[in-house]
Nucleic acid binder design. Sequence first.
DNA 1: TAATGAATTGAAGAAATTTTCAATTCATAC
DNA 2: GTATGAATTGAAAATTTCTTCAATTCATTA
Lengths: 113, 113
Amino acid sequence: MAIVPKPLYQAKAEFFRMLGHPVRIRVLELLQEGPMPVRDLRAAIEVEPSNLSQQLAILRRSGIVTAARDGATVVYALAGGDVAELMRAARRILTEMLTDQEELLDELRAAEV
Amino acid sequence: MAIVPKPLYQAKAEFFRMLGHPVRIRVLELLQEGPMPVRDLRAAIEVEPSNLSQQLAILRRSGIVTAARDGATVVYALAGGDVAELMRAARRILTEMLTDQEELLDELRAAEV
DNA sequence: TAATGAATTGAAGAAATTTTCAATTCATAC
DNA sequence: GTATGAATTGAAAATTTCTTCAATTCATTA
């Protein structure tokens, strides 16, 4: 079976798409404070257990997190990449984008008609 | 017009989802070199004109790019946020995540973007 | 070994996104 | 004013992702 390399822009798109879900974002944010058992993730995120598991499976398959069983509980952790820096960069852009929208909103509010 | 504040993690998820498409990624990468008319985007990206327009519309609506008409052509530009830093952060994580996919790794190392 | 709790899996229906095509707008040239 | 090229729009069909539920695995405890 020949290895057909995936175009880089497609790998990037898949990566961002993997991040594009509220539950997955929250999991990644929580794991930035350190490894955490599923039990705690479930307490912090309002979501059905099986739904959380589905989202965790997506994160696991992508390779951005790892899972380790410890007795009856499973502990998740970031696989190592600097997720914090990525989130900071995203927040900077998001902040700028939302600020612009707010300015637009202010203009709309200020408009006479 | 009631303003319903959106949870931050949801805004983040929407932001990443907006990035999660190969054509949109390529547009953002091309625009990092400066404003560019649709004509040039279409020459650089293999995609149906109307499909490109759909993807451009998504980028526009999100606020990450702006469009300005100049005669018969339309010129797109990044709205201002530091998209380059975001892409670098993403690439760092991707590089780490894909250590077992040699071909893609080589592309990542060679990529300047 | 039976029972319980923790977490995952598989599969189906629901929901969202993507692609495609015909129709439209806008500016320029004839 | 009519034709042409550039780009966008609206809407449907195709595809993908999301949610949900029942069934399952694995470890612990009674």
